[in-house]
């Protein structure tokens, strides 16, 4: 039985994309798969949001793109994080950590 999927929390998509692209350049599908696999398919990326987000982040110069060949030798658009994107990732990660820690604390309050 497949696990139940959870929609992404508002405002977290950019952070997840940046994290997915942190190690290596990836195309859009690979970004989506990375997020899904890393969360054991708990988080489901809405593709209708993923691509506009990639284009928006490119415009903001957090990521940059180039055309290359995919693993099955097809032309695909690859994205990689820029320095500005890395800074943004670290800002968003620390904010998220602070935020989730606070929520956790609240929930574990006896």
């Amino acid at each position: 039985m497949p696990r139940e999927k959870t929609a992404l929390l508002q405002g977290t998509l950019d952070m997840l994309i940046l994290k997915a692209l942190d190690r290596e350049a990836k195309h859009g599908y690979s970004v989506a798969r990375t997020i899904e696999q890393a969360t054991d398919d708990v988080l489901s990326v809405d593709e209708g949001s993923l691509y506009p987000a990639l284009h928006r982040m490119e415009r903001k110069k957090w990521i940059e793109s180039s055309w290359g060949l995919s693993e099955n030798n097809r032309r695909a658009k690859f994205y990689e994080v820029t320095n500005m994107g890395r800074k943004q990732l670290s800002v968003e990660t620390s904010e998220w950590t602070r935020y989730s820690h606070a929520i956790e604390q609240m929930l574990h309050t006896p």
Binding site: G48, Y51, P52, H55, E58, R59
Partner: peptide, 19 residues
Amino acid sequence: QRFGDFKLVVEACRSAGKL
């Protein structure tokens, strides 16, 4: 089905990429 309305996504990408 999973992808949703193709045209809408194209349009969203175009406007997201503009200044």
